[in-house]
Amino acid sequence: MSASDQAQQGRRLDRVRPREQAAIGRQAATGRGWGWVLPTLSGIGGLLLWELAVHGLELPSYLLPAPSEVALVMVEKWRLLLDQLVYTAFAAAVGFVIALAISLGLGAMIAASPAVERVLYVWLVVFHAIPKVVVAPLLLVWIGFGLKSSIIFVVVFTFFPMLVNTVAGLRSADPDLLLLARSMGGSSWHILRKIRIPSAMPSIISGIKISITLAPLGAVIGEFVASNKGLGHMLIQSVGSLEVPVAFAAVTVVSVLGILVWYLAEFVERITIPWHASQRGRSGSES
């Protein structure tokens, strides 16, 4: 066997470490650096088709505005849109943080005590079964217009996935690992900090990833009903007055917010659980 044959053998996928395998897999998926071309072309092509269709079929802008018209509105009203965005993002952020605190606390209690679980379980199931959208008008009655209603609706809308994942995560610690920790003479506190919580992290993070993308949505729905500010309110109002291009502008901004929040979640995942199998081979800073 020649030296180059051996080198070839050494590159076989089953002979490399998992991290390299992951990297190789990723390389194949992105197609050697040209991976961005097709999605970009597809995006531009779609917008172009939409633009042509609107002009070709002479659709009135209160039915379907052309992308160019929406873009124009966004430039004209950027200040207003930015204000609404900040308002909505603030409600989403505050609501999300409160929901996170509640679900971590409650999740820890449920995971620690079967009695607490039995008491709360029924209520959680009932609560989860209630369509959250129904709660929004009630908040209007109970709390009235404004930021407080939006925030509370975001909490209601987002805490459940995080709670369920926190409980599942805290319970998922490997029993053998707990036995090992006990054999080392570890106290409950040490076992919680060094075994249970790290073991729970992947699950908690995936709960956070679900909830964090729900947060802007929750804020917008809350504003539909119980707010006189924010992107949700702007959306409802502009549709009501048939200013459909404005509505599209608002939707665009909400979507951009959603995308940003998703990348934020991915970033958090990468820095909190770099050791997890799903994250290996992602960061070039290691090794």
Binding site: L177, I191, I195
Partner: peptide
């Protein structure tokens, strides 16, 4: 004062090799 080795190595993925060994001391504070 007991050391146990199980069939599975039970190394913690979130710690490097040295920190995995040191876990035995950390558990005792």
């Amino acid at each position: 004062g007991i050391g146990v080795v199980f069939q599975r190595d039970l190394l913690l993925d979130w710690r490097n090799i040295l920190d995995n060994v040191l876990l035995a001391a950390e558990m005792k504070g």
